[in-house]
Write a protein that binds this DNA or RNA. Structure first.
Lengths: 202, 202, 202, 202
DNA sequence: CACTAAGCGAGACGGTACGTCCCGTCTTTCC
DNA sequence: GGAAAGACGGGACGTACCGTCTCGCTTAGTG
């Protein structure tokens, strides 16, 4: 599986007969554009179909509902960012991964994931899909870094990696959903720094 | 009963002529029950009205949409928890406040606030209402504690109180929305402890 | 009972305690004005009440529904025309009565009676009220004239007075409801003349 | 089957895409049944839709309001009666036409046209539709007969055909709306006879 | 003359129907 | 045989009135 995972199976799209991928793309683009231009409230299946110049059935043949469409639209965009690695050190990799996520969320992907997270509160299947396909993969990459850090004696022995990940990612999602701050790189760096050093004076 | 919430105006309810408060309560109870029993998707104005034994107009006279109803239902329940203080020290107060929020979110209030946060992604007015009336008040209490901690020499001088609050509350909302962990007291304590000490070995 | 029946009991108004007659008039005027200005579709109880500067209950205290209000508004205006007599001969009296009715129907009373006849199709009580209080009184005056005409040898022996009345009044109501002609005096005279002479060449 | 009603377009139904005619019939039948069973007041779009086993939108796609539905239901039933001809003489044809109308009005069609005439008092469009599509066609057939009768020297030279038609049809509508008599064949014959001979003794 | 009973405005209330919008399925027609 | 177009059953929306009710305020009539 290369870094950019070509031939990736779509996240939510129904399987079956091979379907015209051009149409798929038109639909995803239409959905994305509509969300960005008019917000999720204006995102009806009718609207997507009309914008994509497509029959409604053509959408339903591929996705079970509009959340699934948005989810695929999100993954189509997020793929390149997925599981980014590259820092010189473990902790640097974590920081860069945080930055990568934040950068994406600052852009169009932020609008999409916000919708997905919102919809997921009403749709357990969607919730589990997001968790399995988006949230957990990032954790699964991060946690071993932290464990390695502990083994290396760089991080505290009593660090709970799961809790640590929550501390790092929690603020990002808080900002994403509540908009109390911007997900700038410097904000991410502050989160990272504060988490590393702790609040208490040494 | 918190120190400063007497005579509190309902969060979202429209004002105007005096209205029968019993009916208000019946509506909020009906809405809460329906949400908890059947989820937000089953929560229609019709359903609330029928369950409450009330005409639909009676609801619309008070709230502009069903999210506002749920918001008031949430505030009616959360009032006692609001802005809890009581720790012996500043930091203890923060920890207890976190616990109080987590405790509420473990119960029915969690279902309500999840829905509200989700709806808020589609409804800027609701988003700002939640931010102003629920999220920010907690921050406004917490930040002075942190500032005092800095002045007292207990917390690092370069601590950014806003970032610190995000680190403390972010994980709670992450768990609330993603359900990757339970908001147990011990989880809260871990969050608090990790944030205080930092990840790095001293 | 004089010709113009002062102290007339209102047609449909509920009895009971004496009520302020000024208010009654304001309501009837408001109802009439609204019908004439905006048509019956705009005639809601709310609209009448608002226009009359009156509470809705004040109307319901007096009339059971808005048709009854319109009916009283009609009678208040039609009273002077009621059972007009005055021709030198019997047949002349009939003709003048037809003219009087037509004249009223050309004016505001036409709008009111049209509404009443229409509502009466859905409301048997109203139908019978109109029949008893408006239609039949006119017939009861006309038929003896016709019978006298037969006895006098002026009208055919085999004339059926009921059928004859229908022939005279039928066209008026047809025009009122279908608007295929205007209820001018000359139209009435033609009706009368045609009915008297018959279609067939002598 | 009348001479010139083939390919007749439905009276009020909206055009556009071809629609399922079975559904159309189900709707009209449901509407007719409901009117006859429970009266027009019980005739709501909801009730029609439910009775017909049809979504409300399906009705609105075809008719702008319930009066239009009833109008089409009326026309669907009245088509066979339309513009009946068949008497040996002109006057006989007129009489038979009157009888045909009266016969229809004695039955279910009477209930429908009563409702339509009533509604038409509140709905100018409906009024003009009834006038153009139902009332006037009958007049347009009758008047030439009368004119021919005049030319043939059978009817008076000073007969006004329009007035004459009013004399013949007026009583039918008077009875229909006021119910002061039954529209029996013998009543129709009396109307016809009285109109032909006139009231005055020869 | 004050008191009290009612009439009154205002409008909240439970309820029904409206006409619209969208969902997810189905059917028709074209390519 | 897939796709566009859109009709279809269904259900929620938010509005408009209905007819009833409950509030205070005004206003007569009565003791």
């Amino acid at each position: 599986m290369s870094r950019n995972t070509r031939q990736r199976q779509s996240a939510a799209v129904k399987v079956g007969r091979p379907r015209n991928p051009r149409i798929q793309q038109r639909i995803l683009k239409a959905a994305t554009d509509l969300v960005l231009e008019q917000g999720f409230r204006a995102l009806s299946m009718d609207a997507i179909a009309e914008r994509a110049g497509v029959g409604r059935m053509t959408i339903y043949r591929r996705w079970p509902n509009k959340a699934a469409v948005v989810m695929d639209a999100f993954f189509a965009r997020m793929d390149p960012y997925a599981l980014f690695r590259g820092g010189k050190t473990y902790m640097e990799s974590i920081r860069l991964q945080l930055r990568a996520v934040a950068k994406a969320y600052r852009g169009k992907e932020g609008s999409l994931i916000r919708i997905l997270l919102a919809e997921a509160q009403f749709d357990p299947e969607l919730a589990s899909a997001i968790r399995e396909k988006w949230i957990l993969p990032r954790r699964r990459v991060t946690i071993p870094y932290l464990e390695q850090g502990i083994r290396d004696g760089f991080l505290r022995e009593d660090l709970d990696p799961n809790v640590a990940v929550d501390l790092l990612y929690g603020p990002i999602y808080l900002q994403l959903l509540m908009g109390t701050a911007t997900l700038s790189d410097s904000y991410i760096d502050k989160i990272f720094q504060h988490a590393m050093r702790g609040f208490k004076k040494a």
